[in-house]
C-alpha cells in the first residue's frame, strides 16, 4: 500500500486496479502490462522456438512432447474450423492461446504479493494481470481484426469482398442495409472479442481483491475461487483463440 493514502476498502481496490504508467494523455504507457505481457511472451515463444530448433522427429523429450501435444491440439481446432490455406492461422492461434493463457495465469498470484514486493522497491502501482488491461485485449483483437480484413481481401479479391459486403444477407436490392449490417457485425467482432476477455479477467481479479479484503475469511475463500478461476483462465484463452479461428474462416469463406 502506497504511503500517504487512506487505508480504506475503496482505496485498496483502486490501488490494486491502477496501472504503473509513464507519459500523459494518449501517449500514456502502462508499463506493468507491457513488461509482464512482454516477459511472458518472450519466455513462452523464445522458449518454444529454442525447443523447436532442436525438435526431433524421433522419440521426443518430455518438454517437446508437452509442447507438441499443446500445439497439435490447437492445430486440430484450426483444422476442424478453418478450411483455407493460409499458413498464418495455426501460428496465430498458438500465439493467442499460449500468450493469453499465461497472462491470465498471472491472476493466480495472490493479489497482494507482487504489489507488496514492488512497493518495497518503491513502485507504488502494479497490475500484474495484463489481460485486465483493455489496452492489451483491444491491441490483440484489433490485430486479429486487421488480419481478418486483409485475409478477406486476399481470398475474395476487392470485387468479391465488396460484393459480399453489399449483397449479404439480403441481396443487391438492399445494399445499404447489407452494408450497415456488415459494419455492425465487423465492428462487433473485435469489441466482443476484447471485452469478453477483459471483462472476465477484470471481474475475476476484482473478486480476488474483494476476497482479500475479508481478513481471515479470505483463507477459505481464495482457494475455491482460484480453483474455479483456473477454469475461466483456460476457457477465456480457448474462447479468444477459437473465435479468432472462426472469424478468419468466415473471412476466407464465401457467405453465399
Amino acid at each position: 500500500m502506497a504511503s500517504g493514502e487512506p487505508l480504506t476498502a475503496s482505496g485498496y481496490i483502486v490501488h490494486h486496479l491502477t496501472n504503473l504508467t509513464v507519459g500523459h494523455g494518449f501517449w500514456t504507457l502502462h508499463l506493468d502490462s507491457l513488461i509482464i505481457s512482454g516477459l511472458l511472451g518472450l519466455f513462452a515463444f523464445l522458449g518454444m522456438a529454442k525447443l523447436a530448433s532442436k525438435a526431433t522427429s524421433g522419440v521426443p523429450g518430455k518438454m517437446q512432447a508437452f509442447v507438441e501435444m499443446l500445439i497439435s491440439f490447437i492445430d486440430q481446432q484450426v483444422k476442424d474450423t478453418y478450411h483455407g490455406k493460409s499458413p498464418l492461422v495455426t501460428p496465430l492461434a498458438i500465439t493467442i492461446f499460449v500468450w493469453v493463457l499465461l497472462m491470465n495465469t498471472m491472476d493466480l498470484i495472490p493479489v497482494d504479493f507482487v504489489p507488496m514486493l514492488l512497493g518495497a522497491a518503491g513502485v507504488h502501482y502494479f497490475k500484474v494481470v495484463p489481460t485486465t488491461d483493455p489496452n492489451l485485449t483491444f491491441g490483440m483483437s484489433l490485430t486479429v481484426f486487421t488480419i481478418m480484413i486483409v485475409m478477406g481481401f486476399k481470398v475474395k479479391g476487392f470485387g468479391g469482398f465488396m460484393h459480399e459486403v453489399f449483397t449479404v444477407p439480403f441481396g443487391a436490392k438492399m445494399a445499404p442495409v447489407n452494408l450497415l449490417f456488415r459494419l455492425i457485425e465487423d465492428i462487433a467482432k473485435p469489441i466482443s472479442l476484447s471485452l469478453r476477455l477483459f471483462g472476465n479477467m477484470y471481474a475475476g481479479e476484482m473478486v480476488f481483491i474483494l476476497i482479500a479484503l475479508l481478513g481471515l475469511w479470505q483463507l477459505p475463500l481464495a482457494l475455491p475461487w482460484a480453483l474455479f478461476h483456473i477454469l475461466i483462465i483456460t476457457l477465456q484463452a480457448f474462447v479468444f483463440m477459437m473465435l479468432t479461428i472462426v472469424y478468419l474462416s468466415m473471412a476466407s469463406e464465401s457467405h453465399g
Partner: peptide, 14 residues
Amino acid sequence: NATLIGEAIWFGVF
C-alpha cells in the same frame, strides 16, 4: 492509450 499500440506490437512480434 498508446499501450494498445505497444501490446499490438508485442502481439505481432510473438
